[in-house]
Design a protein around this nucleic acid. Sequence first.
RNA 1: CGGGGCGUAGCGCAGCCUGGUAGCGCACCUGCCUUGGGCGCAGGGGGUCGGGCGUUCAAAUCGCCCCGCCCCGACCA
Length: 568
Amino acid sequence: MLWSKLFIPTLREPPAEAEVVSHKLLLRAGYIRQVASGVYSHLFLSQRALLKISKIVREEMDAIGAQEMLLPALNPAELWQESGRWDVMGDDMFRLKDRWERDLCLAMTHEEVMTSIARGELRSYKQLPQIWYQIQTKFRDEMRPKSGLMRVRQFIMKDSYSFDLAPEGLDISYQKHYDAYCKIFSRCGLSYLAVQAHSGAMGGNESTEFMVASAAGEDFVAVCPECGYAANLEKAVSTAKPAALPDPEGNLVPEEFHTPGYKTIAEISGFTKLPETSQIKSLVMVVDGKPVLVLVRGDHQLSATKFSSVMQAREIRPAQPAEIREWFGAEAGSLGPIGVTNMTVIADSALEGRRNMIAGANKDDYHLRNVTPGRDFQTRFADLRQSEAGDTCRNCGKGILELKKTIEVGHIFKLGYKYSESMGLRVLNAAGEEVTPIMGCYGIGIERILSAAIEEHNDKDGMALPVSIAPFTVVVTPVNIADAAQKQAAQEIYDSCLALGLDALLDDRDERPGVKFKDADLIGIPYRITVGKKLTDGLVELVQRRGKTSSDVPVAEAALAVKKAASA
RNA sequence: CGGGGCGUAGCGCAGCCUGGUAGCGCACCUGCCUUGGGCGCAGGGGGUCGGGCGUUCAAAUCGCCCCGCCCCGACCA
């Protein structure tokens, strides 16, 4: 294509609203324009990149026998009421009414529609397994859209769904997706990490997230450098660093002491001259309307995700100050487990076996020393704490966990029977009995692949996209378009590139070379053939965008040289 | 939803405090010049100053209300 005819509105300066690199570059390079918060138009270049990503996704999905469909984004409320998610999704789901006042929504995902198709049509175990997928627009009313294409309210997702007769079949469908996802992200040039993850509102019991390390990410992943264990921080298990000071020996009796004005863990630590690990942190949560006292070691953080799943809660929230006052008769800074009988008490495993610790006295400005779990109060223990960098890996027992900030580009789930059960999907097995198929679901964020690739591959001049997803593979740039020889050579090389099947662009604009070079670098074309002075010696330059390495090649061989380099 | 910031030409910004002709750089158009990293010279077009109400002889500027966007938090496949 001829650059002079294309709409590639590059900007010298990034718009002020852009914060992260990929967002700045997508705007500057003329890939996208914002329409509203979390809503973007994909212009020519972006659409080309997204189509390339989608093509890779299609090829790998088709390769595992998945069948592409296209489902509606507009869904009737009834489907979502059947699965129970009309209520569960809350404000995250866009809802609307038609002219007859019937409730509709814009689908955030498609378990409901897929399952309804399956239950309407699948009758026999002989029709299983099935893997169905689509590449389609999803809508989510994010509380806070951010970071360009990273977290948006309308986006393109590849979502697939598997239906199997039995768990062993699901294992196979899941593994097929796992392998396909690895190929997809590799082909897109991403350095990804497959990590254990929490299933959240999707349901199910096992899931793997595919993450790309990036400062612009929103998720933390715990990684063990020794054994390769990797899990989303929400899910990660680990052995806490030992207490900084051994507990006092002996069967000591709880003893109240005055702590005037000292409320936080850090303040009490400073006041008592004892490390934070000697304290029991008391948090009051409200689980489905009922108060629960949660205990963790002073220096630890409660994992809301772990807590929520241990409690099998639908909804959790921290208690309000007024509620705390009513239930404990004290402020949040002086709470503790002793004497609490009006609510469930649950403690993190790191407190198991500890003794003679410090906790609040449930009396303003007083704490207790010599508090021993199990003796001074009864509680059950569970893994409730958020892992942190420096913890010991529980998988291998040796490695020290590191934390990485990441972008989630894919997520696969073993759903189990949640949707097939609630929506009545049944088939007959070989014995003629009605059985409920087991399901899996698998998602990839198409725009997130583009964002992550830009985050991973950029420099001060712009994007340095991999050949596989760049909107063009090569740009042919005559330095001086007014020079007839250069112009003609450039045209010939461009034609040769096209003949070789390369996605080629001819920068035929009457611009100064600096402008053309800057633009080519900015939009991230992997190869550039510069036709300039050396043409008199029959040579042109082949410049690689990454690293800006360049080599002289004869005019006649230029296209082939790109072809070779690009497919290497 | 809580906290913070911003809204003036396509982009980046100044002007606002202290009310009085709406400015700068880039981009854009015309001409000349130039052609290996956003070139130079000359001329030119483009703005309901986010919106409404109010104060005032006079509002981008002061007051009130509303809207939008960004960041932090809560939240989240």
